[in-house]
Design a protein around this nucleic acid. Structure first.
Lengths: 161, 161
DNA sequence: ATAGTAGCCTAGTAAATTAGTCGGAATAAT
DNA sequence: ATTATTCCGACTAATTTACTAGGCTACTAT
């Protein structure tokens, strides 16, 4: 099991889409700016999200991405699964062949842990996140920063040095 | 966050120690054989476990390792922490500086997930594992295999090819 | 004393993964 | 036609994993 920036980026980007729903397709350039994620990297992640039928793309100018399902029908676990291949904590992919064909001493423990994590994350939808206070606060801050083009340039210069 | 064989090996090895408690120090060679983990790799893991005061070592012939605390007083979370540095799911190490000094859109979600995982794993002690049916079954199987030296050689030859 | 058994320590390494970059299509709106 | 965007493939530096190799140190049994 691994949860790195890859999965975190995917969830963040999907949440960004959910927050700006109803404004037509959202371009990856917008998400890149707002969330501070490399555009090319986002492209790779969205290729996987699209293959997993989580988003729908519109090409050409004014194009971008939209959620393929309703916000309430997409949960965090499947977003991570889409880019990461599973939040499984076992080494044997739950097959039980961890120690030369047989289950290892701790196999069931990792199965339990996997269930725990999956249960937790699959119980949280994008709609749930949109309604959270902390998410709304951060989203508002990001709106304010986007409205100040000078600050944007200053911060990108600072991060480049 | 990452949970790989590293953390799994550590927990498995610690559980092996817990299962064979009361028989004096257990050598890493024994654990290596029983659990199918490379001896040199075990040495590296146990160096960390020792630094974190989870095990106590006895050098020289007949030496090995013993749990430093009672089985009921060592939980799975701290074993993983010892070799892995934390089961933290955030990218900022819970500092909240994920996006140029400020919290990112999904910071709190990862904090919640971290708490969830830590809560689950810290609630399971080595004693709990020792008493589980599935663990006892696997432990008995490992005892039987160890009692058949020919089979051991045959399986090691097979895995080497 | 000394041989042998263990733990201890450092260094190296192949393979995989991460988090990107780069360049160039294909597509659609103006 | 130009431009904005998704799409696609190849490449890469840095990091991590899961090891191996080899030598040293402490201890015990003989």
């Amino acid at each position: 099991m691994r949860l790195t920036t890859k999965g975190r980026y995917a969830v963040t980007a999907m949440l960004d889409l959910a927050l700006h729903e109803g404004k037509g397709p959202i371009s990856l350039a917008d998400i890149s700016e707002r969330q501070g994620i490399s555009l090319s990297y986002l492209e790779q992640l969205f290729a996987k999200l699209r293959r997993n039928e989580l988003v729908h793309s519109v090409r050409g100018p004014g194009g971008g991405y939209q959620l393929k399902r309703e916000r309430g029908e997409i949960n965090v676990a499947e977003v991570i699964d889409a880019v990461n291949e599973s939040v499984d904590a076992t080494g044997c992919n739950k097959t039980g062949s961890c120690q030369s064909g047989e289950v290892c001493l701790t196999h069931h423990l990792w199965c339990d842990l996997s269930d725990q994590i999956h249960g937790f994350l699959s119980g949280i939808s994008l709609a749930d996140l949109v309604h959270r206070h902390d998410v709304q606060e951060v989203a508002e801050r990001q709106q304010r920063v986007m409205a100040q083009p000078e600050k944007l340039i200053a911060s990108s210069v600072a991060s480049a040095s």
